[in-house]
Design a protein around this nucleic acid. Structure first.
Ligand code: MN
Ligand code: MN
Ligand code: MN
Ligand code: MN
Lengths: 145, 145
DNA sequence: GAAAATGTTTAGCATAGACTAAACTTTATG
DNA sequence: CATAAAGTTTAGTCTATGCTAAACATTTTC
């Protein structure tokens, strides 16, 4: 009982710290995933399309892309389309895989399609490898009915 | 086919917008839930304990509590404990209920305990009423084994 | 009850992510 | 090919969340 009390602050803060860490990479993940999507769909990713799909202002995209470039996830030149680096592609693919599993999993437990699309956009970033595995296991055993 | 394309930017941005909205209330939810927890456990909530459990600096807690006070979620006086308003209690209780369902649900699909504790801290804020219902349904049908 | 320990606030700073408005560049159109 | 439209960047601002270091207040201890 006492040991549980004593550890509880440390245990508790570990969870909050993980959530804060998740939030730091969340935007990067969404951007690269979206850029990959646009390249796949339209052949190239332009700032305007990113802004439109994210629902943010153009200037916000310009700002964030600068950071992604500093992080080595994208390359860009003025007035040109945006490209992903090797690291960017890797993050995009991992992100898409995770996103798909989470969304399909929500559908499998009976969440309506529109809601699954919306909720998975936020949930995906807080799902650890172990939870993702559990979701994937569930999907194998009990596919979408 | 075309209509899907046309709607896709709007549909896509709706999901991102919801996630951004979730993030705006996330910290408030975690704070009031934690404050309720401390009051329950120790009889009162002090800044230091909040900081310790969240894993942030004391000054950060002071800052954030000012905002929560402006939002009408807490009341406080210098060098005194922190209290929840009616609205604060409501948010804390709703938050705890949601958090519990998410955590138990993760356990039910086979996520290890430590991981369920950590992941639920982030996931809880992105779970809509419908998804929460689906999780609750699942728990009734298939309780933790 | 004075000194030390603990708790709390203030001050100053940094980064991320959002916005609007204005400037500039590229592309399309008449 | 000149002008209009569309796309992109820059500049300036705001809020939220975090930090450290220093000041201040309360509580405990001797
Ligand atoms: Mn997302
Ligand atoms: Mn919670
Ligand atoms: Mn939380
Ligand atoms: Mn989140």
């Amino acid at each position: 009982m006492k040991s549980k009390r004593l550890q509880s602050a440390k245990l508790r803060s570990a969870a909050f710290k993980r959530t804060r860490a998740d939030h730091q990479v969340e935007i990067s993940e969404d951007y690269v995933e979206l850029i990959a999507e646009l390249i796949d769909e339209k052949g190239e990713a332009r700032g305007t399309d990113i802004a439109l799909r994210l629902g943010v202002a153009n200037a916000t995209v310009v700002n964030t892309l600068k950071r992604l470039q500093n992080q080595g996830l994208v390359t860009q030149e003025p007035y040109r389309a945006i490209f992903l680096t090797i690291d960017g592609w890797k993050m995009a693919e991992d992100g898409k895989r995770k996103h798909d599993i989470v969304e399909k999993f929500l559908l499998a437990i009976g969440v309506p399609e529109a809601t699954a699309r919306i909720d998975s956009e936020g949930i995906e970033h807080h799902v650890s490898t172990e939870t993702l595995k559990a979701m994937a296991r569930f999907l194998i055993r009990k596919p979408i009915n």
